[in-house]
Amino acid sequence: MFAKFMLPAAAAASLFSAQAFAQDLTGTLKKIKDTGTITLGHRESSVPFSYYDDKQQVIGYAMDLCSRIIDSVKRDLKLAKLEVKLNPVTSATRIPLMANGTVDLECGSTTNNLDRQKQVAFTITHFVTANRFVSKLSSKFKTVDDLKGKTIVSTSGTTNIKQITEINSQKNLGLNILTAKDHAEAFLMVETDRAAAFVMDDILLFSLVATSKSPKDYVISADALSVEPYGIMLRRDDPAFKKVVDAAMVAIYKSGAINAIYDKWFLKAIPPKGVNLNLPMSAAFKKVVVNPTDSGDPAAY
């Protein structure tokens, strides 16, 4: 399956949307117009996508993208004022909270996959990562097989924990899998030797290590367990809202604005500790920028 959302469609969609909304708004757009508010779901420790800085404000790459999406929504709906509410979500709560209307957009590090598309929708992919694990350098773990019989941790509600659970039973590794509420808590389990390894998307592991007390003590596994495209999450069966959001994302990519936003979070010092992740755009993500896609199929990347 290849990119099902290509540029001409997007351009047409944005043209179409700008006119069509004036009359019959439905779904999330109607709600936003009626209430004058939009609610963003955000994470607490998905560095650098969505996390708390040292002033306890929510910041991040996905938050910046969302604020641009909100600007387009505001413009499209011709609203003078659009109040933005923030609602914290965890990996475990984000999908039910999207389904039950608590949040309108989830701006974080959520993997877009076909399984989840049965529950929620995703806009254009904003990052491509892979499932790996981090462990202490001193424990010398190279591959998943080295973890045999060990206690490992992952964040509840993620694709990563699902995958390691499956691998555990396929390879008969006898892993003791702990679940943590959020990434910081999971990383802490490794830091305090509660768990031998933390299985998670490599970008999040990379950021956690970089911002940890002693980054040189940790190593991220080389072999990737999977490819994980991240998308900003929306409610399912709301094509009108998805069109606006998709169009906003495509505009960010096509105008080149993405470069500045990307650089700000991945190639410059970021709060709270002024660490520079120093991660240039991957080839897979560059492809997405050129040909924006919302595919949930890892083969598309």
């Binding site: 779904g27 709600k31 609610t39 609602n87 389904a99 209307g101 608590t102 309108d104």
Partner: peptide
């Protein structure tokens, strides 16, 4: 027609 929006405090 759809679930009403309730914030985390109210919930």
């Amino acid at each position: 027609e759809r679930p009403i929006q309730v914030g985390y405090f109210t919930s």
